[in-house]
Amino acid sequence: MSDPSVLIERAKAGDKRALGRLLTLLEELNADNAWILERLSSEGGRAHVVGITGMPGAGKSTLISRLVRAFRDMSYKVAVISIDPTSPISSGSIMGDRLRMQEHATDPGVFIRSVTNRGILGGVSLAALAMIEAFDVMGYDKIIVETVGVGQSETDIMNVADTIVVLTMPGAGDDVQALKAGVFEIGDVYVVNKSDRPDAAKTYEYMLFVAEKEALGRGGSWRPAVVKTSAALGLGIRELAETINRHFSYVLESGEKERRLIARRTHLVRLVAARLLLQSLSEVMEGERERVGKVVRDMRGFYDEAMRIVRLTGKRLVE
């Protein structure tokens, strides 16, 4: 079970062990095994990629577990990619999202995979992007990607998903910080989760206002939707699933699907390039450490030194 071509064939036949192994190969994407992704992607582009983003604790994982059930009831095959945000390069990570979805672990039509964000830019790692391509070919209709929306990562999900679901909860939605962070500019669907809580009505009103305001500034005929849910109690889930599907119909009919697919794959190429660059840069910096150390003593000529490093990095890459 070591030949990637065999893994692909077996995975297509529904062998989850083979698919799990294949995803690991994609996680370690490099020049030698890039052909695997080429082969997979040549057949893909059909699945519906749903990005779910929001602050930690908003209820993303709990809600996804409910959504998986709803999509399964509609007879879709569902894959979940859960991206662990808290893993600086130097240390490990605990991937805990899966815990909330384990009830689906043994469902033949569900595949859940956790990946760490060892990617360099934004919240969606290169590994996750490569995995989307694989799930697509393996017949998963809905590919749900969970990312934490902080900093740059929520704009990152724009380049990845066909449908972007932004999760908020009572007390968080009317937060100026969230507005500033730009989270409320990217959603196709806004969800006010934890609507079992008494202060939910206010947040819902606020999100309606945000969506209304935002609809004005957009091209296309899709108006951002706002849905109230309680992932804990299982309320509003069906409506959410249907809204997400309605958005996908829009994406397909408007020709937006093609554009989003290109954006996603362009982003993948960008992340590969970024990784190569950074890899080279670290190697050059390591080799030039002494010289740089001297320059920074009085910082004289530091800018030229940086430019020299850039040139060396470029040279190293080309070699």
Binding site: I94, G96, L99, Q102, S114
Partner: peptide, 8 residues
């Protein structure tokens, strides 16, 4: 430095 998947 491990990646730990915790299933509860």
């Amino acid at each position: 430095g491990f990646e730990v998947v915790y299933t509860g």
